[in-house]
Amino acid sequence: MRVLGIDPGSNCTGYGIVESHRNSLKSIHWGSIKTKPKALFPDRLKSIYDELTRVVGEFQPDIVAIEDLFFAVNAQSTIKLGQTRGVAILAAVNASLTVAEYTPLEVKLSVVGYGRADKNQVRDMVTALLGLRKKPEPLDASDALAIAICHLHNQKTSKRLQEALSSRR
């Protein structure tokens, strides 16, 4: 299974594609979409949408996993993040892909085992889990890879649970 993880942000949206092979994970590609801070916000959203559409077309993921909203102190930032998530979800849905959503806590617990891990700890674990020689940059890209890994971990756990329940019947 090939998963596109997305860490949405109006200034920088991270993305990462991870593939599972039996019991191992492999990174396919990662990067970030940096928008021009002085550009009009609708134009920034269009840039994010267009680039994610390109990534989906090029790497053909089976599913998209995206970070769910968390509540920021600043309401304006929360609204912009929601709009950014919206265009990312739209890019996935327009490509007929299913979207899975995970909170930052779920991602950190799944990848690091600690819900209050910082971005550097997440990047270090992503580097180790994927067997990378270099740490993924920027941090938004490593967060996106972590979101993809979280989805793959959750899928594996769900499959095991269903198999266990089936064998009890």
Rank of each mutant, 00 (worst) to 15 (best):
K38I: 12
A39W: 12
A39Y: 10
F41S: 01
P42C: 07
R44N: 03
L45H: 03
L45Q: 03
L45I: 04
L45K: 01
K46G: 00
K46E: 00
S47N: 10
S47A: 15
I48T: 03
I48R: 00
I48N: 04
Y49K: 03
D50C: 00
D50E: 12
E51W: 00
E51I: 02
L52I: 04
T53Y: 07
T53Q: 06
T53K: 09
R54L: 12
V56Q: 02
V56F: 08
V56N: 05
V56M: 06
G57T: 05
G57N: 10
E58K: 14
E58A: 11
F59E: 01
Q60N: 15
Q60V: 13
Q60R: 14
Q60F: 08
P61E: 00
D62N: 11
D62C: 08
D62R: 03
I63N: 02
A65D: 02
I66A: 13
E67V: 02
E67T: 01
L69M: 14
L69R: 09
N74R: 07
N74W: 13
A75P: 15
A75M: 13
S77R: 06
T78V: 15
T78C: 15
I79S: 06
I79Y: 11
K80C: 04
L81T: 09
L81M: 13
G82H: 00
Q83G: 06
